[in-house]
């Protein structure tokens, strides 16, 4: 008789619920409802994929950055994004899915990533707009996640948020420099803001009554604030920043509604959102193609490293046998 039969599922569920209720953390080997595990795998891996795909629109400008300082900053930002993807894949792995599986899902088109990255970056000002608007929106989403109920996810988010603080600033400063520059630079900046503003508002997702997963995620404390709530906070942050920049947010109806105590905006065109989500945005196909190509082109390299490691392990165990010893637990230390 296995221990599985002896597990009292009701008791496990009660313990799980109590942890959630107490705002404490679920850790990797804790019992959790299968739906919670699946939702987390989906959410964390999507987040990881977004970071990795997000490297592409910005990576597009590394070789053409118009000053060496901007080049360095942009390279560091994109490098951070790779790192963030790694932290998140690492958190997802604790739930029983492997990196290879997640990569395969992404490449096969079976996994989602933030649809904001399905837009092209035709100008340098897009680097500013992405940093200011897209990273700004991401930060709004991410800071609450630092208190997500799943321990590894929350901890990854704390690390990410610390690092991401410069991403929004560098985007803002790119735009500020442009707006204080030549007429052509000012036009470039305003044009980029015009193109990225509405998509960045859509990053928070549809109104919650149309968002099927919201309620359950909120109950599990994976999601801490509603979509509309976050969108409102984001707009509230942007308005004074736009004033400093001297850019116009492309919404003629945008104003503070004192009676309703919220920002009044034009209607968001959710059809565009759904089109892009369904694969019919400008860059959907290309983002996956690019990732797939890098992965396929790199296969022989990964294989070579794995094969070398196998050979070395074989050599080591052979020499251990000859010496009559056994292999010790493989840990390696480096200290400075």
């Amino acid at each position: 008789m296995t221990t599985d039969v002896l597990i009292d599922e009701a008791a496990e569920q009660a313990a799980f619920d109590a942890i959630i209720e107490a705002d404490s953390r679920i850790e990797p080997r804790d019992w959790m409802p299968e739906a919670y595990r699946k939702t987390l795998i989906r959410q964390i891996s999507q987040h990881a994929h977004s970071e990795i795909i997000g490297m592409q629109p910005e990576g597009n400008w590394i070789t053409r950055a118009p000053s060496l300082k901007r080049k360095a900053i942009l390279m560091a930002k994109v490098q951070d994004e790779a790192g963030h993807g790694l932290y998140l894949y690492s958190a997802a792995q604790t739930l029983g899915i492997t990196r290879d599986e997640m990569t395969d899902q992404l490449i096969a088109g079976r996994a989602r990533y933030s649809s904001i990255f399905n837009y092209p970056t035709p100008t340098w000002a897009d680097m500013g707009a992405i940093g200011w608007l897209v990273d700004g929106a991401a930060i709004c989403n991410q800071v609450p996640l630092c208190r997500a109920s799943y321990g590894p996810y929350g901890r990854a988010m704390v690390r990410i948020c610390k690092e991401e603080s410069f991403h929004q600033r560098q985007g803002f400063e790119i735009l500020l420099t442009l707006m204080q520059g030549t007429p052509a630079q000012q036009r470039m900046a305003q044009d980029a803001v015009d193109r990225w503003y509405w998509p960045s508002l859509m990053m928070f997702g549809p109104p919650d009554d149309e968002s099927p997963n919201s309620a359950q995620s909120m109950a599990w404390k994976i999601k801490r604030f509603s979509n509309d709530d976050l969108r409102q906070r984001f707009i509230g942050m942007l308005v004074p920043q736009a004033e400093v920049l001297g850019v116009t947010l492309p919404d003629p109806e945008l104003r503070w509604d004192d009676d309703a105590q919220r920002w009044h905006t034009s209607e968001i065109d959710w059809t565009e959102f759904h089109e892009v989500l369904s694969g019919r945005g400008p860059m959907n196909v290309e983002r996956i193609r690019h990732r797939r190509t890098a992965h396929e082109d790199g296969a022989w390299v990964r294989e070579a490293a794995a094969e070398y490691a196998r050979k070395q392990a074989g050599i080591r165990s052979l020499s251990d046998e000859r010496r009559g010893g056994t292999r010790t637990a493989a840990g390696t230390e480096a200290a400075s």
């Binding site: 492997t98 990196r99 794995a306």
Partner: peptide
């Protein structure tokens, strides 16, 4: 073992 390790991967965790 820790969660996530799998013998199926090209590069181990």
């Amino acid at each position: 073992t820790t969660s996530g390790a799998s013998p199926r991967e090209t590069w181990p965790l």
